[in-house]
């Protein structure tokens, strides 16, 4: 059994996550959680990653208070209560 964490996605992407914008995942590491997220919700994958598997430019994925883009490694053991938050930089105005 992995560690249970909370995931939030923008409401605009909730049609890819069975209508939910907050849900839980169980994984051991951050890397595992990110893999599981797109495995469980394959429609989400195209919104988060480009064809090279890189996080899309206007997508911000935060692990607790850090954007995963700033982390040296993703092989981080998860702790209960950790949060994975998907955001899209907002361009409208």
């Amino acid at each position: 059994m992995g560690v249970r964490i909370t995931v939030t996605v923008p409401m605009l992407l909730s049609d890819c996550t069975k209508g939910r914008s907050a849900f839980e995942l169980e994984a051991d590491t951050l890397q595992g959680a990110l893999q599981l997220l797109v495995a469980e919700y394959p429609l989400l994958k195209v919104h988060l990653y480009n064809e090279h598997g890189e996080v899309r430019k206007h997508v911000l994925i935060y692990y607790n208070n850090d954007n995963i883009a700033w982390l040296d490694k993703l092989d981080i053991p998860l702790a209960a209560g950790d949060k994975l938050r998907v955001l899209q930089a907002v361009s409208g105005g």
Binding site: L12, R56, K57, H58, S91, G92
Partner: peptide, 17 residues
């Protein structure tokens, strides 16, 4: 914050969603 890739894709806009 945004990264330095192309600037063409800006996500959803008020005119689309």
């Amino acid at each position: 914050l945004l990264g330095s890739g192309d600037t063409g894709s800006g996500g959803d806009t008020c005119d689309t969603v």
